[in-house]
Every structure is written in structure tokens, then in C-alpha cells.
Design a protein around this nucleic acid. Structure first.
Length: 277
DNA sequence: CAACTTGTTTACTT
DNA sequence: AAAGTAAACAAGTT
């Protein structure tokens, strides 16, 4: 389930594989993975759109970018958005090897390698962008970018639970279910607290905890053979996520699980008091 | 078989 | 009316 850290690790991999190379061939194995816009249902794309994809042929890969969970690749003058959805990943294989399972789009490069976009569940997509700036359209600031507590608080209004709000990509881009829970644990803020009732101090703790959590996650990950792995050794990868009933690493209290916004939410009832503090 | 995952749209409720 | 919640949808793994 790629959140910002996984997408950043993929961006670095793609950067090393593709930037400075010329695309010599594009293979679209799954046309429905090509979309005119993000968030649309999979439909067979228009001939114009498919031609635009084929038009990457002959272009040089000039840059990569990321904002939140969105990945950007510049080919010639054009920018492309890759969204990994839930199962998107990449694989780099030699030209004579067959396409891997669930390969959707492949870019043949002038070094004899092919970079495959694989996406078992097909929630991901390849989308053309009108500009580099369009990568950020509709999104809040990137969650890795440091903000002070006041600027962070200013992004959030209303009565929503803070965890639900933190996962709202239009307020802050990059946090999903896992890292929202982990950042709240680091900041000692209970996930069900209403954003309107958080203190200035709590916003400041969150502003510090969010980039720290994401940096730590990026540092623990690496890309190997088409998968992003946690390389920490498996221990203490997550403090609370998926650890219902297991001891909180900070105080030993059993981790609780509740449901917020329809998602499983893990937290420490002692470190993250529901009453606030 | 059901739960779980993202992001968007649609349909309710407060 | 606006804001928030929930379900549906895409599709596959566990």
C-alpha cells in the first residue's frame, strides 16, 4: 500500500534507471491503465490518448518528481503522472526477458533495458499532465516538507477526527492509513481528537512528527527487484500500525484498534490520551 | 468468504 | 447550505 515513502523510493529507482536515457519503444499491455484524468474509472482510452502515450517514443527522460503519493516523469517537453494505487510497482528487465506478471506499461530504453509499470489490482494509472505544476493540482503541501505548527493547523478546519483530516490529500499530501497512525503516535495525539480542539502545542508536535515519521520510513526502505522492502530487520518497523494488543514500544500499554473514517486505526490509549493534553 | 487497501463519486445525514 | 459520513467502485491478496 504505497504511501509517500514508498513512492519516494520508487521515484529514486526510476530516476536512476531512466533519467538521461532515450525511450526507444512504448508497450501498452493494459490500455485501461492509461487514463485521461486521475480518479476516473478504467475505460478504454481514446485513440488520441494512446497516440500521446506512444509519442513518448524517441523522447528523452529528463526528470522525475513526486508530490504526496503522485509520481511525475518528464519525457521531452511532456510530463506524465504515475499513480501507484494500491499495488503499483516497477520492474527493470532486459529487453529479451518476457514482461513480468501484471505488467501494464513498459518503456524500452536505449540501454537495452525495459522499465515495466506493474499493477496487479489496476487501481494505479498513467496520466498525461499539461505541465509540471499539474502534478500538485488539488493537493495540499507535500507532507515531507517541514511546516511549523501554526501553518499546519491552518490547513485544517472543522470537526473531523484528526486522523481522517491528516489523510485528506487536499489538506496535506502523502499520509495514508499507516503513516498517519504512526505520526499521531509520535506526536502523542489520539487519532479521534477533533481538529478544532487540538492545542497549539499539539499542532507543533504533529508538525515535527509527520516529516520525521516519513523520513524514518524512507530510510528503512529500499527497492529490490521490483519490490520496495523494509530493510530494518522486521523489528520495530511500526510502533502501533497492525499491532493491536501488542505493547506500545514507549510505555508497554496494549495498542488499541478503533475504526475512523472506515479505516482501522491503531493507537496507544496511554501515550495518546483521548481527552487531549 | 470477508477484510483490507486508495481515491473519487454519489448519496445521505447533521 | 455547508460540512461531514458512508457506501460503492475499481481488483487482487491474505
Amino acid at each position: 500500500m504505497p504511501e509517500l515513502p514508498e513512492v519516494e523510493v520508487w521515484r529514486r529507482a526510476l530516476h536512476g534507471w531512466m533519467v538521461g536515457r532515450r525511450i526507444v519503444g512504448v508497450r501498452v499491455l493494459a490500455p485501461t491503465s492509461v487514463r485521461a484524468r486521475l480518479g476516473t474509472r478504467p475505460v478504454t482510452p481514446s485513440a488520441e490518448l494512446l497516440e500521446r502515450v506512444q509519442g513518448m517514443e524517441g523522447g528523452e527522460v529528463l526528470a522525475t518528481a513526486r508530490h504526496g503519493k503522485r509520481l511525475g516523469v518528464q519525457v521531452g517537453e511532456g510530463w506524465w503522472l504515475l499513480h501507484l494505487g494500491m499495488s503499483g510497482r516497477f520492474e527493470r528487465l532486459s529487453r529479451d526477458e518476457p514482461a513480468p506478471t501484471h505488467a501494464r506499461v513498459g518503456w524500452g530504453l536505449d540501454d537495452g533495458q525495459v522499465v515495466w509499470f506493474c499493477d496487479a489490482r489496476r487501481f494505479g494509472a498513467l496520466v498525461p499532465l499539461d505541465s509540471a505544476a499539474a502534478l500538485r493540482e488539488g493537493l495540499g503541501p507535500d507532507a515531507l516538507e517541514p511546516l511549523d505548527g501554526e501553518s499546519l493547523a491552518a490547513r485544517f478546519r472543522g470537526r473531523r477526527a484528526v486522523k481522517v483530516a491528516l489523510m485528506d490529500q487536499s489538506c496535506l499530501a502523502g499520509l495514508g492509513n499507516i503513516h498517519a497512525a504512526e505520526a499521531l503516535w509520535r506526536a502523542r495525539v489520539a487519532p479521534a481528537r477533533r481538529v478544532s480542539e487540538l492545542s497549539v502545542a499539539e499542532w507543533a508536535w504533529l508538525a515535527e512528527a509527520i516529516p520525521r515519521q516519513l523520513r524514518a520510513a524512507i530510510d528503512q526502505m529500499s527497492e529490490v527487484d521490483g519490490f520496495v522492502y523494509v530493510t530494518d530487520g522486521g523489528e520495530h518497523v511500526f510502533a502501533v500500525y497492525g499491532r493491536e494488543g501488542l505493547p506500545c514500544p514507549r510505555c508497554g500499554t496494549p495498542v488499541a484498534r478503533t475504526v475512523l473514517g472506515g479505516r482501522s486505526t491503531f493507537w496507544c490509549p496511554r501515550c495518546q490520551p483521548a481527552e487531549g493534553g
